[in-house]
């Protein structure tokens, strides 16, 4: 019989101790976690960034990653975009009873690889098991802490007219791929999530360019929603050009079939950057050196600071408003 996660694994007793000591430590061991105290204890100094997120994706395993690596990268990305180097994360598993233990191992292994790859440590965690049908296989809640070096803190820089809008690469992949997967469609190898750690290029970028004024990862709601957030935050009108937006052919095809605009589709390894016009081309040249931002492109600019609004110049040359995502395009994709 296949070994399954049972309710008793979350009860705090012997089985849970076994799970923590055998499985969690095997994959995630580090000096802070290994102490197995009720809290992780460590020293940090400087300006800190602190974030939290929850991951409830279906399916839990997908091309390009799984719920484990997604929770590590997603948390680290939220830290990196504000200029913080991610250091520590917490993981809280809410497991639906009946999850195969081998799936839990696969997720732990993926968390281990992802966190080692970007040099963060999982320092504390928790596990609860809920009855069958009270959850959906596994939910992961995380928190993350990082340190912001003063030169990487872009928050006080003034976003203004003529600043350029940059996307760090081809848009819309994660959301559209997950949608296809959930529809049960068979897809080619190239059709997959774009999940990745954006700190790999965002942090060096911030070290080299003072003209970076805003960075946000374009997850749920996609690029269109981030642009609207920027318009409202800084009370600016933004204009982007449909022809300039980097988009893979399969994304365009899938968006045609599903009726979902890639501008609203989630990304898991792409950021929107607002940058000073004078450094724009150098920033693009710099970003092109990194694998994850090799297709970085200027897609538009800030045109006025009179009211919060985003416009799209369409491929036929007309212009319309680009709203943020309203309602749902797809439940639970990240």
């Amino acid at each position: 019989m296949e070994k399954l996660v049972l309710l008793s694994y979350g009860s705090g007793g012997e089985l849970m101790r076994e799970l923590i000591e055998k499985d969690y430590l095997k994959y995630l061991s580090n000096p802070i976690l290994d102490e197995l105290l009720d809290s992780a204890v460590f020293e940090l100094s400087g300006k800190l960034a602190f974030t939290t997120d929850s991951y409830v994706i279906t399916p839990i395993f997908f091309k390009g990653g799984d719920i484990g690596s997604l929770s590590v990268y997603g948390t680290a990305n939220d830290l990196a975009v504000v200029g913080a180097k991610p250091l520590f994360i917490s993981l809280s598993f809410i497991i639906e009873e009946g999850l195969p233990i081998k799936d839990l191992h696969k997720i732990l292994e993926s968390i281990s690889n992802a966190s080692k790859g970007i040099n963060v440590n999982v320092v504390t965690g928790d596990t609860k098991v809920v009855e069958k049908n009270k959850g959906d296989k596994i939910f992961i809640n995380t928190a993350g802490i990082g340190v912001i070096e003063p030169n990487r803190d872009w928050r006080s820089r003034k976003v203004d007219v003529d600043d350029v809008v940059i996307v760090s690469g081809d848009i819309g992949e994660h959301g559209l791929y997950i949608m296809l997967e959930r529809l049960g469609m068979k897809t080619d190898e190239i059709v997959k999530s774009d999940m990745g750690y954006v700190g790999s290029f965002v942090l060096p970028l911030l070290d080299n360019f003072e003209g970076i004024k805003f960075v946000r990862d374009a997850t749920r709601g996609g690029v269109a929603t981030v642009l609207n957030e920027i318009a409202y935050k800084y009370n600016v009108e933004i204009e982007i050009e449909e022809d300039l937006i980097p988009t893979k052919d399969w994304v365009l095809q899938a968006s045609e079939i599903l009726g979902i605009d890639p501008l609203y589709s989630a990304n898991e390894g792409k950021v929107v950057i607002i940058a000073d016009k004078s450094q724009a081309q150098d920033i693009i040249n710099f970003l092109k050196k990194f694998e994850l931002s090799a297709n970085a492109t200027i897609i538009g600019k800030i045109i006025t600071n009179k009211k919060p609004r985003v416009y799209l110049l369409t491929k036929i040359g007309s212009r319309r408003i680009l709203e943020s995502l309203k309602g749902d395009i797809l439940p639970r994709i990240c």
């Binding site: 009726g259 605009d261 007309s318």
Partner: peptide, 15 residues
């Protein structure tokens, strides 16, 4: 309805 959506999406009324 798809025509309605695309007419608006490409701002055809505006041109």
């Amino acid at each position: 309805g798809t025509h309605t959506h695309e007419i608006s999406r490409y701002a055809l009324r505006s041109i």
